[in-house]
């Protein structure tokens, strides 16, 4: 209302002309924009969807090839995949992913809290360093890590392999969590501190619960990273009994000279199931949002 009044004062009579002229073009622009966005998303969606359809189709099709075809439904491919050790490999992946996620999340939460709340010398340099590390390819570190592992006798141990997997996730998790904890108002910790609470208890009772959505995101990312890990377990753990899923699929693919598309697709589906379940479970949690509502005014 006020804009009309002002316009009328400045140039009497022109106000409604301005209004009517600007609204339709504005709308058109918005609609065009929407159309473009949706079209792009649609094309991208199809590009991603096709391999998925192929995967599901082939997994249930006993005569699967590299091309799509009408499925003759059967679970034979799944049986073949399990017979080739898919079950054990997934169990191994689960171990690596869970252990590395626990370690990485704990370490990065503590580090992020310290970086967020404490005066740390050269903090911004340190944080930039951390950010730089997240971009470093793991391959670079793998040979020296292997040397160290052999030296310490850590090779072929799922636990120590998890440790390395955790280490590869920590920089990004620290970065993510530091920024998340920065958003948690400090007054909550102050209110707890004035009650005589120790810092450990404040961390446990206040900071961690309030940062839980962020911690969960960091944990999921770590989990997925470790779940799909290929190179690290391949190099650091040569024990066939410890082979995780990603390596298992690779070995299965090249095992018999010709690629068995059906069982391979079934293996792939079995291997991705836990991640899908994880997403479904966590999306609920994450929907809870990052709310500090009601805690502080304004």
């Amino acid at each position: 209302m006020t804009t009309i009044d002002v316009a009328e004062q400045v140039m009497p009579g022109k106000a409604d002309v301005l209004l009517h002229a600007s609204i339709p073009t504005g709308w058109k622009r918005v609609r065009m924009h929407k159309l473009m966005v949706n079209a792009t998303l649609g094309v991208l969606g199809i590009v991603f969807l096709l391999p998925l359809i192929w995967l599901v189709d082939s997994a249930f099709n006993t005569h699967a090839t590299a091309s799509l075809g009408a499925p003759a439904l059967s679970l034979a491919n799944f049986r073949a995949a399990l017979a080739a050790g898919a079950g054990g490999a997934i169990k191994n992946s689960l171990y690596l992913a869970v252990v590395s996620t626990l370690i990485a999340t704990a370490v990065s939460t503590l580090a992020a809290y310290t970086l967020s709340r404490r005066r740390v010398p050269f903090k911004s340099t340190l944080l930039l360093g951390v950010l730089f590390l997240t971009g470093l390819p793991v391959t670079l570190l793998l040979i020296p890590t292997y040397e160290i592992f052999v030296h310490l006798g850590w090779a072929n141990s799922p636990f120590y392999t998890s440790l390395v997997l955790a280490a590869t996730s920590v920089p990004f998790a620290v970065w993510l969590l530091k920024n998340f904890i920065d958003q948690v108002p400090k007054e909550f910790e102050e209110a707890a501190a004035i009650e005589g609470t120790t810092e450990m208890r404040i961390l446990w009772k206040i900071v961690i619960p309030l940062s839980l959505p962020g911690i969960l995101v960091a944990a999921i990312l770590t989990f997925i990273n470790s779940w799909g890990a290929f190179l690290i377990p391949l190099v650091l753990d040569a024990n066939p009994g410890n082979t995780p899923g990603a390596v298992g699929i690779y070995q299965f693919m090249s095992a018999n000279g010709t690629v068995q598309f059906g069982p391979l697709a079934a293996y792939g589906i079995l291997f991705s199931l836990p991640v899908v379940v994880l997403y479904l479970v966590c999306s609920r949690w994450l929907n809870g949002g990052f709310a500090f509502a009601g805690g502080v005014k304004g």
């Binding site: 108002p185 007054e187 909550f188 102050e190 209110a191 707890a192 004035i194 009650e195 206040i206 619960p209 309030l210 709310a291 500090f292 509502a293 009601g294 805690g295 502080v296 005014k297 304004g298």
Partner: peptide, 12 residues
């Protein structure tokens, strides 16, 4: 003991 201007009640 302190009452904060913005309350600082633990939201969780």
């Amino acid at each position: 003991a302190m009452v904060f201007q913005n309350y600082a009640l633990f939201p969780h």
